[in-house]
Amino acid sequence: MSDGENQDQSPGRGKGNGRTPPDADPVLPRVATGDPAAINECYDRFGGLVWSLARRFCPNASDAEDAVQEIFIDVWKSAARYDSEIASETTFVAMIARRRLIDRNRRRQRRPPMPTLPEQAAAPAEAVGEEEQSEDVRLAAEAFEKLRPEQKQVLRLAIHHGCSHEQIATTTGMPLGTVKTHARRGLIKIREILRAQGKLMDEAGNRPGEDDS
């Protein structure tokens, strides 16, 4: 994906196709109460997101299916602490998914390599699950565009597969220290921009604008 891709979303709530915005009717609070219907709805809403992430991080479809199962259990366990004032449900679910997938990757790297099945071609990039883009995702896209080209290059590699600094250095030919600096400063910049727009809490648990020195 080029830097300019995914920038065709209009500000606000995405493509305006008349569907319900993703966070207009939050499902996680209902998942937390044990509502059986909410579990199905949660999967329908975020299954595409989680599956796409898992396919990207996992070596084969079977591993991705196991990961998706684990991620949705994590989501179910964490649903009660979702706070709509901090992030959208989409971002919350993606955060949980990324953590699990990065953790699985780290564990996998400690094991002997397993033979992997050939990668299946991805289905066309049609709307999957969520047709609308959450505000924090739109803001993240805008923030990403404000980064320096080298930061974008490194951050894209880091985020896409959870590539290590060494792997990125090998791929890009950049010195290891430069890779680390670009990855960290790039993400810090995006976080700062999101916080400036009233998103996320800081390390002290403060919301934007609250004790934000």
Partner: peptide
Amino acid sequence: YAAAATDIAL
């Protein structure tokens, strides 16, 4: 959260 939102955006 910032990494997750960027991931979805990209």
